[in-house]
Nucleic acid binder design. Structure first.
Lengths: 108, 108
DNA sequence: CGGAATCCCATACGATACTG
DNA sequence: CAGTATCGTATGGGATTCCG
C-alpha cells in the first residue's frame, strides 16, 4: 500500500489504511446506523442495508472490528443473551466527524 | 446497485452512488488537495500521491468530473496555457464537510 | 508534461447453500 | 437468528507503453 504523500505540496491526505476501511461500500452505512441507534444486531443491520449478503456484511463488520471502530456486545434478550454491535469511543468519534459528510451526501 | 435502505429502522445511510465516488481510494485525497491549494495540475497531484499510476489518477479525476465535484481549468503558463483541476462549488461544499473526517482520520 | 490504451491481478461484492 | 463456506463476477488499481 503506497504512502501518501511525498511531493512538494504539503499533503492534506488521510492515511490510506483507514481510507480502505471507511471506503468499503457499507462501512459508512454501518457506522451511521450504530451511531444513530446505539446497539444493533446482525439481522436488522442486514435488513436495513437492503439485504446485503451475509458474507459481505460479515466482512465489513470484521474490518471495522479490526480497526476498533465497533465491537460486539451481548445484551439480555427474552431467551438468553444475544449479540449486537455498537460503536467504540473511537468509532463514535468517527461517527461525529462523519455527520457533516453524511448530511452533504444525502443532500447532494 | 442495491438501494439502502428498506428495513424497519429509519436509514441514516448516504446514497450508494456517491459513496462509490468518495470511497475511491484517492478521491478524498484529490478533493483535499484541491481544497487546500485551489488549482493543481496533473503532475503535482500525481507526485503528491506518491506516484499513483496515471491510469488510476485519470480514472479518479474523471469520476469526480462526472459528479461535477471538480472541473478542468486552463491557466496561463510561461509557454502558453496549461491545464489544471479545481473544485466546483459543489466540490467545495464536499471539501468543507470532509474536513472533520479528514482531521479525525489523520489523528486516529 | 498530460494523459490514453492495454494488460493483468487482487479483491470487494453478490448469490447460494449450509451449520450451530 | 447469526453467521461460515464456496464460488463466480465485476472492477478498482498498478505497471507499462505510447502519443500529441
Amino acid at each position: 500500500m503506497s504512502q501518501c504523500c511525498e511531493g512538494d505540496l504539503e499533503c492534506p491526505c488521510p492515511p490510506i489504511g483507514l481510507i480502505d476501511v471507511v471506503g468499503k461500500k457499507w462501512a459508512v452505512c454501518v457506522v451511521s446506523l450504530l451511531g444513530k441507534y446505539g446497539t444493533v444486531r446482525f439481522g436488522p443491520i442486514q435488513h436495513c442495508l437492503s439485504g446485503v449478503s451475509p458474507a459481505t456484511l460479515t466482512s465489513t463488520l470484521r474490518s471495522l472490528e479490526r480497526e476498533k471502530l465497533i465491537r460486539r456486545v451481548f445484551v439480555d434478550g427474552a431467551r438468553g443473551p444475544v449479540q449486537g454491535y455498537t460503536l467504540t469511543p473511537s468509532g463514535n468519534q468517527l461517527y461525529q466527524s462523519l455527520l457533516p459528510l453524511a448530511g452533504w451526501l444525502r443532500s447532494a
